[in-house]
Nucleic acid binder design. Structure first.
Length: 388
DNA sequence: TCGGATT
């Protein structure tokens, strides 16, 4: 990769300013009487950035609004992976306001970015984000906020919803408090407790960093994107498995916009590779973010299409699922269900794929596929364990 | 023979 090595930024939600010039320019930073800069009207936090957006793309997008004093895409200290958020400090408060008005809610790939004023940097607001699971499906975001608000000021909250069933709660969500100690109190008070009228207790814990996809999921998506760019969809394995024609050829009555959106829906902004046998991955910089800005992605934006895989051997592991499903398209997650005590596979697992047609092709091809001495049963996951 | 979930 020839890309300039971007700095690895700590996981702290802090903005390190390049510092004021020391003189007060007409549109320059506001200097308070004690000499500290007041960034409250110029400094923005940007959330839900696409996983592979680069510092350069980030700066390019927000620089299109006005002069930037400093900006940072926040990355994992160890892996260098984007944590999906960043800070932009404008010179002119009017530009900060303009950025919120024009860029908040912008859809980029599968994300809808959030642009808002950043809170002043402080140690006490770090690690104040909670992950909540086991929520009753009927509980709304407002209900959840009400439950948690007794412990402090809530900055953000969210309940994750199922993409296919049009917004049914997945029973998990997030609550970010203003202060870490408020979050700690909420864990003490609510973890393992049953909300009023709920049948099951909820789990409340500190959240992981955003978008911590497995490295393998990222690699798989990169591979898919790169390979398809030059050879079209991988169908060598499809042909081995079935007589179904390769997908991606000819009109697709179910999704006529797919070719246009293909690059955006997949993991990369763009991957160029030499047309050799082994793909090389060298990200390219797109010239203008405006090409992305005009596109509104439609359809599922959530987890993807969940596939149930039955009749795996007790020894099966995640890698077999990656190998089986990866050739059909973008796989975002695989899971082998294991017995808690023996740690052996219970005979089934799940695979999540981004695109419906690829998931359908994988199912059509892999259902009935013989893996060792077993015949797999593969289908879309049902919502409940009842049979048809 | 259909989990656990990480914006």
């Amino acid at each position: 990769m020839s890309r300039m090595v971007t700095q690895i930024i700590s996981t702290m939600e802090t903005q390190v300013s390049n510092g004021p010039s020391g003189t007060s320019l007409p549109n320059g930073p506001v200097i308070s009487t004690n000499g500290a800069t007041d960034d409250s009207k110029t400094n923005l936090i940007v959330n839900y950035l696409p996983q592979n957006m680069t510092q350069e793309e980030f700066k390019s997008l927000f620089g299109s609004i006005g002069e930037i004093e400093s900006c940072k895409l926040v990355r994992d200290k160890i892996t260098g992976q984007s944590l999906g958020y960043g800070f932009v400090n404008y010179v002119d408060p009017n530009d900060a306001d303009k950025a919120i008005n024009t860029l908040n809610g912008l859809k980029l790939q599968t994300k809808t970015i959030k642009v808002s004023y950043a809170r002043p940097s402080s140690a006490s607001i770090r690690d104040a984000n909670l992950y909540v699971s086991g929520l009753p499906k009927t509980m709304t975001q407002k209900d959840m906020e009400q439950l948690f608000s007794q412990y402090g000021r809530i900055i953000t909250s969210r309940i994750l919803v199922d993409q296919v069933t049009a917004g049914i709660s997945r029973g998990v969500g997030f609550i970010r408090f203003d202060k870490r100690n408020e979050a700690e109190e909420a864990i003490k008070g609510l973890n393992g407790q049953k909300p009023l009228g709920a049948a099951e207790p909820i789990t409340v814990k500190f959240a992981n960093n955003p978008s911590q996809k497995t490295g393998q999921a990222l690699l798989t998506q990169l591979y898919q994107t790169a390979a398809r760019r030059y050879t079209g969809p991988l169908h060598h394995q499809t042909q081995r498995f079935s007589l179904i024609p390769p997908f991606g050829k000819g009109p697709d009555p179910n999704n006529s916009t797919k070719p246009i959106l293909d690059n955006l829906l997949n993991a990369s902004y763009g991957v160029k590779s030499s047309p050799s046998l082994l793909p090389r991955f060298s990200p390219i910089t797109i010239d203008s973010m405006t090409s992305l800005a005009g596109v509104n992605l439609t359809g599922p934006t959530g987890a993807g299409w969940c596939i149930f895989v039955y009749n795996l051997s007790p020894e099966a592991d995640e890698s077999v699922l990656w190998q089986l499903f990866g050739p059909f398209g973008a796989v975002t997650n695989v899971k082998v269900i294991r017995d808690f005590t023996t740690n052996k596979c219970k005979g089934f697992g799940f695979v999540t794929m981004t695109n419906y047609d690829e998931a359908a092709m994988a199912i059509a091809s892999l259902n009935g596929y013989r893996l060792g001495d077993r015949v797999l049963q593969v289908s879309f996951k049902t919502s409940k364990q009842h049979k048809a």
